[in-house]
Design a protein around this nucleic acid. Structure first.
Ligand SMILES: [Zn+2]
Length: 295
DNA sequence: TATATTTGACCCGG
DNA sequence: CCGGGTCAAATATA
């Protein structure tokens, strides 16, 4: 049966996909508890694909005759003509496990690949669909939908989580930029506070170089939301920049840019971002630190 | 050459 | 059938 074949194929493809993701995950040595859970799930998925596939095979092997190849009467294979464009089953849509944020920029530091765009009823702007750039290379299943609500206002819905463990792009190296202002007001305006558990503690650390060496602390405009303020602004001790920009800049040209801009903070996906405001332009820039961990 | 975007067809649940 | 999500061939870009 064609139906059974498609079920079998789907099962095998699921197994292959899960095995690929599992391979990627096992290739790492800095697994967190989330990854452990993922590994468990992936093993279950692979097992299930075998069970499903075997189930299909055993059910049709004795009953149904083998499906014959289709030939034209004169022996030539049926030409696809314009090709049937028939596609396999689409992957199951998962509206669960989604997170939403509204931002004034569709960028978030991750590398995405656009795979679609749709006009949405009662929406002024089209909705754009993205998946992680490393979906195929690393089996990362993260994706997002971006709906522009108005000028400089985007609603971003995230699905799945990044397992690619790549560092977000577009990073800039902050120099010793005295006089830079950190505008934590950006916090409140992005709706992040509602997503931050009140019990969340900023993990203090003395191992790392204080950021106040690089940014004049007297100029820090700390208008953080109350739950995040406190003396734990020493949590800045825990903030340090990653280096490296896969883009065009070589890191030496960035300092002047930084010192001219206004910096704001961003929190997303357990990471703290510094963002640079240059007039109307906002450049997502520096990942400072993973925020609250699971272990 | 290789990778990213565009875009209409395809898929699927309601 | 419709609306929204996805696929993939054609196209663009470096
Ligand atoms: Zn990813």
């Amino acid at each position: 049966m064609e139906k059974k074949t498609s079920i079998l194929v789907e099962a095998l493809i699921n197994g292959k996909t899960s095995a690929k993701r599992l391979q990627n995950l096992l290739g790492r040595n800095d697994l967190n508890t989330d990854d452990i859970v993922s590994i468990d799930d992936l093993v279950m998925d692979v097992t299930k694909s075998f069970v499903d596939g075997l189930s299909v095979l055993s059910s049709c092997d004795s009953t149904d005759p083998e499906p014959q190849e289709i030939f034209t009467p004169n022996g030539k294979e049926t030409p696809p003509a314009v090709a049937k464009q028939r596609r396999g089953q689409y992957k199951r849509r998962t509206s669960m496990d989604s997170r939403v944020k509204v931002s004034d920029t569709p960028e978030d530091g991750y590398q995405w690949r656009k795979y679609g765009q749709k006009e949405i009823l009662n929406s002024k702007f089209p909705r754009c669909y993205f998946r992680c750039t490393y979906k195929h290379d690393l089996g990362c299943m993260a994706s997002k939908h971006v709906q522009q609500l108005e000028k400089n206002k985007f609603r971003i819905t995230y699905f799945g989580r990044h397992t690619c463990h790549t560092t977000p792009h577009n990073r800039v190296v902050p120099h010793d930029n005295n006089g830079v202002v950190l505008d934590f007001e950006a916090f409140k305006n992005h709706g992040y506070t509602t997503n931050i558990p009140s019990t969340t503690k900023i993990r203090p650390s003395r191992k790392r170089k204080s950021l106040s060496n690089k940014v004049s602390s007297t100029n820090i405009d700390a208008r953080l939301s109350p739950s995040l303020v406190s003396d734990d602004l020493t949590a800045m001790d825990d903030l340090y920049p990653y280096y490296g920009t896969p883009g065009s800049d070589n890191g030496s040209s960035s300092p002047s840019i930084i010192s001219d801009g206004l910096l704001g903070m961003d929190i997303f996906e357990n990471e703290v971002f510094l963002r640079e405001f240059m007039g109307d332009d906002v450049h997502d820039g520096i990942i400072l630190e993973s925020f609250w961990g699971h272990n």
